[in-house]
Every structure is written in structure tokens, then in C-alpha cells.
Nucleic acid binder design. Structure first.
Lengths: 406, 406
DNA sequence: AAAGTTAGTTTTGTTGCGAAACAAATTGGT
DNA sequence: ACCAATTTGTTTCGCAACAAAACTAACTTT
């Protein structure tokens, strides 16, 4: 709520900076027109921003008649952000610039869920590596975002779920990383971070509401509602993995029956393959210790059994997504996570089911795509969280953040 | 987005008026403290509000020491709002004051879906009746809200769904009522209006996110997200009635199979009763043309068959609500619509299913209640929409609305 | 009665906006 | 080459709205 004229300037500063960032290059008049402010005000605001290294003037552009506008350009490389994707069994760490470009990346397998202390040490090591590779010193690094495979609970949404991350009870991830790296740290759910990444840099830039569905070991959903992450009243929104698909379905790790996750998560897909093999079904996969990549590879090679398994998963996902569309009516559904490596083999039956199960015409025609950012989506989203928190959260002293006059 | 000092006053005016309205009576200091503004500013703002008849000073209240604060009191009876609930087969029209108190009400059966012209004439007649009974003249009536049993589509969310309201294609409800009554008219979906009513006057006052589920001929869901009605990207959010409960379930009027509506809507319940009777099941209901009220009455009398039918509906609803809780995590679920007359008979199995099917602990403990406003909820919500649109929508010239100096 | 306390008002100073005037940079016509 | 027309950006000025501080009002305690 803006209620005093001081906040008006802060607010306008934020808005103008945001417009330049989104446009890349833009002139003062164009800002004035789009922001519904006078040119004189924009001059003043821009003069406050120019001393920071976040924007600079960069020549002119030809116009039909009259003085040529001076372009203001955003320095996407002025700062770096660090992002961590803590998977159940892997780590991805990125350094990113302000334009969403990945400057350095590390990916490795690690038993995160069961080893909190070692995980934190490993995350620190990887953070320092990418920070060094990207070549940004401490002052030019704005902060660290961490995506965790768990909903965040508690008053301040800062506690990991004890159900999913039982080994992490009592560990203060945020504090430990902040103390070690001496940078601001923000923690959020992995599916939310995927959604944020797609909203900022991926397919979601033009829509106000989208859902990012991550299908990996767990099945989660990040919701962007009215352009911002929606967490729900208690912080557990988006648990699509535990919506019921089949009341009499298999038992899920959460204790319920027939959850989407128990039917399309990685363990479920591997179990389905194993069950078919045990039934004596012939397949290229017989006698191997299979991974999702193996299943996808065999399916691509034309092996009928894995194809069937993947298509079945697609139909289950389609059912859950159709229900999501009917209920939440987002403008876009983005799919991420390892299971989406299956590509069209998964997407075709999924889309078919959505068409069959959508009420409104707009939903039947809803755009459903694979993540544009692929495997990196969650880590990139985590890094993006830092920008979002520092620049978009009201009350953040923006001049201090960007290093303007104080 | 507030960006010029002119809007600052408008914004503060709105905020202060809102605080007095919500508090009923409040002193200037308390407003200053809560609004984070100086006492001098509040004095000025209040001095702009006092000439309108929306607030007045009303004596003092004792304090521990020092000058007693002067209470400012909101005149809930200064204006009236009219609300219309267009059901599929009934009409409810209310006149309401600014405090959510119903001043006059008309309820009657009417085949709304199939007779647009007659419906509009009838609505006008009822509107004039309640307006007269409430005793407010034209100037003291702020406007009319209309709830329709259809999602609103199109760019400006002003077109009725042709699927649900096929007889109404081409009818401009808003324009016709506005022309006849010479008052501002706002139209929205019925479940949204129920949700709005519960958020303003019912059980939802303390939560930021809630779902109002209306179980009648159709099954709809209004969502309040971050304290405002959420409509989705295309305006069709909340269609819980057409989420899939059983892939092999009965055919729904929408063309899909196993929709919640096809299993718990009024026609579904009556069909279930009929099917049991046709099977030769003994019951008090045998040989009668039954309504939902009959089914509930028989169940209350201890007749096992209708009890079973109602409990089954409760379990289906519970399943859909559990999925809603997992996905959207609202702080409250409110049930409305004629089917909820069944009371605990419906609610107990519903709550039981929710407990069984909720992932997060917070959801298993989610509050699920019957509407506090009962049958009137939707009509009251429609009237409330007028307040919300006139006072809360940025850009509305508030001083003009409230009749301050211009 | 005097001192202390809290509520509300008035005065004064500051901030930040828009409007208007102005300066700068460009095109096009004569 | 020069001047009018046009558009961008800056400067000046007046106005609106806020906070701070001084002040008045009303009340309690000593």
C-alpha cells in the first residue's frame, strides 16, 4: 500500500528499472508513455538510476522526424545470482546474470535427502566453483536462491516438511549457507522455482497464471497466480502429486492411495516396467537394472512395453492436468522433471486426455509445453528468486540494493 | 500502481474509509496507527469524508488517561445495494445495506435458463419490490449485482457461457437491467458471489484464500485468492463441477464422464434415488415425485436408502475437496447450495474423506463449514460485488462515488 | 490547582509530481 | 543554407499531500 509521497518515488524507481530490464533497451519517452508518467518525472528517475551500473545510455535510434531518442540499456551483466536445485538425489548449481543467462553450471548426483551435513558442504563447494567460474566477486553477487524438494511450512514459510525431509529436521539450511557464503539466501519449493523460471525466462512471459508441473521422483506443481508465486494459506499449495487419480490405486509414500505421484513418479514408472517384466513380457529392458533414461531409450527404439508404460503415465498426468485446468484455469501448463525426457511419447496421450476431460473450450485449447529451460529450470528459477525478492518485494530498500545514493 | 501524489490521497481516502467500514467505530489515532500515517493526515482525510453521510462522529470512549478519542462511526444504512441470484430454476433478489444486512428479500421459482426475456422482466419487478420495501430512493442505491449460473467469458468477462445458457445467446443482461433500472450493474458467476459473501460477511473474514462450493443443479466453486475473486486466465476458474471423480462414471450434461456434478448435483441425487427405487429398494420415498428436500426429510426420518445416497454424495464431494485442498491450499472451504440442506449427514462422510485424502497436515485439519449465509449467500454476494467494484477497484473516482467535494 | 498524558488541529517544511517553457537534435521544404 | 516543423529530453514553477513539530483540547492523577 503506497501511502506517502516518499514511497511514490521508490515505487516509480522500481517500475522504471523493471521496464528497462524487461525491454532491454528503451527510451525515456517510451517509458513515460508506458508508465503514464510525465517526461520530466522519467528524467528525474533515470538520473537516479544512471549513477548505478545497472543501466547506461547507449546511442540513439532513428525515428521518422524530430530529435532521436536516447536509448537506455540494461546491464544484465552488472550483477550475478546463484541458484541451487536440491533434488532428492542430485544437485544442480548455477551462476546466472540478470538476464537469465547461465554463466556457469555444475550438476552431480548426490544423496541429498539422507545426508544434510554433507549436502550443505557440497552445495558450498559448488557455489564457490560457479561463482569463481562466472568471475563475479562478492559485491557483484546479489544472493543465493535454493530450491528444495519439499513444501515450506510454518509461520514464515521457512521450515522444511518433516514428512518428506525427515533427515533434515532441525537443520537451518538458510542460516548455514548464509553464514558460509556471506550472501542473502532465499529458500523455496522446487516446483515453485520452475514456475518462476518459466514465468521470467521461458514460455510464461505473456500469461499471468501458469502451472509448472515437475515429474521426477516426486510430482509437484508450482503455481504462478497474478504474476506471482502462489503458496496458499498454509504454504502447501501445488501438491498435485498427492491428488487422487484412482481411489483404489497403489499405495503412495505419503500414506494415501492412488496419488498421481504413485502412478507417474520415477519409482512408479520403474515399478510398472518391473511388473511387466515379472509377468514375462518380452522387452529390450529384460534383465537390466533400469533407469528412466533406459525406459525412454527402449521406447524410442520401438519396444512396445515401455511405450505403453509411458503412454499410461501420460494419460494419468493428463487427467490431473485437466482437473487443474478446470479448477484453476491457468493460461499455460509447463512440464519439467526427468520423466519429461520422454517427450511427445508422454505429451501426446497427455494432451489427448486433456482434450477429452476439459470442460471449457479455452481449457481444451490450453497450451501445454515442455519446459523451455529443460533440466536447469529449477536452478535458474532459484537464482531468479533472488532478483524477485530484492527488486519486487515492497519495502525492500531498492536504492540500497542497487547501490544508489542514500 | 500509485505513481503520482494525486493518487496518494485517493488511495488513502479509500483505505481510511475501508478501515472505518470494517471496524464499525474507530478513532483517528487508531486509524493513524494502523495505517502507518500521521495523525495530521488522518485529520485531513477524515475531514474529506465527514461531509458525506457515510461516516459521522459518535461520542467518545473512555481511555486510561488523557483526552478521550472521538469515535468515527460508519453509517451502514447510508446506502443500499441490490443483489440478484439467478439460479437455473429460481430467483432470489435482495436489498442490502453497506453492512451486509438484508433489508428485503424475494425468493421464487422461475425457469430462468429457458426464458431470458421473461426472466429479465421478472427480475426487474422483484428489484423494484425490494427497493421499495427497503425504502431507499434511487440516489441512495449504489447499484445492482447479478449472479449467473455460468462462467463469464470473453475479453471483458461479460459474455455468458453458450454451453450452459444456450437460450441466452445474444442477450445483454447487463445492458437491459441497467437501462430499466438506471443504476450501475455488475454481473458475475454465482459461485464467485457466494465466495465473496463468505469473505465479506461470513466465515472467511480472517482468511486470505477460500473456496465456496455450491452444490445445487450445477456444482460450482468460487475462489478467493489473496482476498480477491480469482477468475483464471480465461475467466473459467472454479469449474470443480467438471473435474473427474470417476473416469468410468455417468455421463455429464457437459459431455464428459464422471464429473463431480454428474455424481453429486441435484439431478444426480434424484437419479440415484430413482435407481434404488427401480431396483425395488424399500423406502419412504417410493411412488412419489421426489425433490432434494424430500430426500433429506426421508433421510432425517431414518430411512436407510436416502441416507446412503447422501453419504455417497458426501464422499464424492470429499474427494474433490481433498484434491482442491492439496492443489490450492485455501484456508477455508464453505459449502452452499440446496444439497447442503442435508447438513451433517453430508458433512460427516465428506470430512472423513478429506481427512483420508489430504497430503499436508494443515489440509487434513482445514476448516470445512456450511455457508453462514445459507440460501441467501449468492444474492448477498451479488449485492456485495457492487460495494467491492465501487470502493475497491483502483481508478474508480471514489469521491464521486461517495459524493464528496469534486 | 498544577503536572502529566493522550487526542486532534494547525503551521511549517519537504518531497515529488505535472505543466509549461525551453533546449537539443533531427527532417524537410524553399 | 536557412527556416519551419517535430520530437526528445531538461529546467522551472506551482500544487498536492505528506510528516514533524508546535499547539489546543480534554481528560486523569497528584
Amino acid at each position: 500500500m503506497i501511502s506517502d509521497p516518499n514511497d511514490v518515488r521508490e515505487n516509480n524507481l522500481r517500475m522504471v528499472l523493471d521496464m528497462i530490464r524487461e525491454a532491454g533497451t528503451i527510451s525515456r519517452v517510451d517509458i513515460a508513455r508506458a508508465a503514464q508518467l510525465s517526461r520530466s518525472t522519467i528524467t528525474n528517475v533515470v538520473n537516479e538510476l544512471l549513477p548505478t551500473d545497472l543501466i547506461h545510455e547507449s546511442g540513439t535510434v532513428s525515428s521518422v522526424v524530430g530529435r532521436r531518442p536516447i536509448l537506455l540499456e540494461f546491464n544484465y551483466d552488472a550483477r550475478a545470482l546463484l541458484g541451487v536445485d536440491m533434488g532428492a538425489s542430485h544437485l544442480t548449481v548455477v551462476a546466472m546474470n540478470l538476464g537469465g543467462r547461465v554463466l556457469a553450471i555444475r550438476r552431480e548426483s548426490f544423496p541429498v535427502l539422507t545426508n544434510p551435513d554433507q549436502s550443505i558442504a557440497e552445495i558450498q563447494r559448488l557455489l564457490r566453483e560457479v561463482q569463481a567460474e562466472a568471475g563475479y566477486d562478492q559485491e557483484k553477487t546479489w544472493g543465493i536462491g535454493i530450491a528444495v524438494p519439499s513444501p515450506l511450512e510454518g509461520e514464515k514459510l521457512d521450515r522444511l516438511s518433516p514428512i518428506i525431509m525427515s533427515h533434515w529436521i532441525g537443520v537451518d539450511l538458510k542460516r548455514e549457507i548464509r553464514a558460509a557464503m556471506r550472501l542473502p539466501v532465499f529458500v523455496d519449493n522446487d516446483a515453485n522455482m520452475g514456475a518462476l523460471a518459466e514465468k521470467w525466462w521461458g514460455h510464461g512471459r505473456e500469461v499471468h497464471n501458469l502451472a509448472f508441473i515437475k515429474v521426477a521422483t516426486g510430482v509437484g506443481c508450482g503455481l504462478i497466480i497474478n504474476d506471482t508465486i502462489y503458496r496458499g494459506e498454509g504454504g502447501t499449495a501445488g501438491e498435485i502429486g498427492h491428488t487422487s487419480i484412482d481411489v483404489n490405486g497403489p499405495l503412495c509414500r505419503c500414506g494415501l492411495r492412488g496419488c498421481l505421484e504413485a502412478m507417474t513418479g520415477v519409482p512408479a514408472i520403474l515399478a510398472a516396467v518391473q511388473a511387466e517384466l515379472d509377468n514375462g513380457r518380452p522387452s529390450l529392458l529384460a534383465g537390466k537394472a533400469v533407469t528412466v533414461a533406459d525406459v525412454v531409450a527402449a521406447a524410442r527404439a520401438g519396444d512396445p512395453m515401455p511405450i505403453e508404460v509411458i503412454q499410461r503415465a501420460g494419460r494419468y498426468l493428463g487427467l490431473a492436468i485437466a482437473n487443474l485446468l478446470n479448477l484453476v484455469n491457468p493460461g499455460l501448463i509447463v512440464l519439467g522433471g526427468s520423466v519429461t525426457e520422454a517427450g511427445d511419447m508422454l505429451l501426446s496421450p497427455l494432451r489427448q486426455t486433456v482434450r477429452e476431460r476439459s470442460f471449457a473450450k479455452s481449457n481444451a485449447e490450453a497450451t501445454i509445453t515442455m519446459s523451455r529451460l529443460g533440466e536447469d529450470a529449477v536452478a535458474v528459477g532459484a537464482a531468479t528468486l533472488v532478483i524477485q525478492q530484492l527488486l519486487h518485494v515492497p519495502g525492500m530498500p531498492i536504492l540500497q540494493v542497487i547501490g544508489g545514493k542514500m
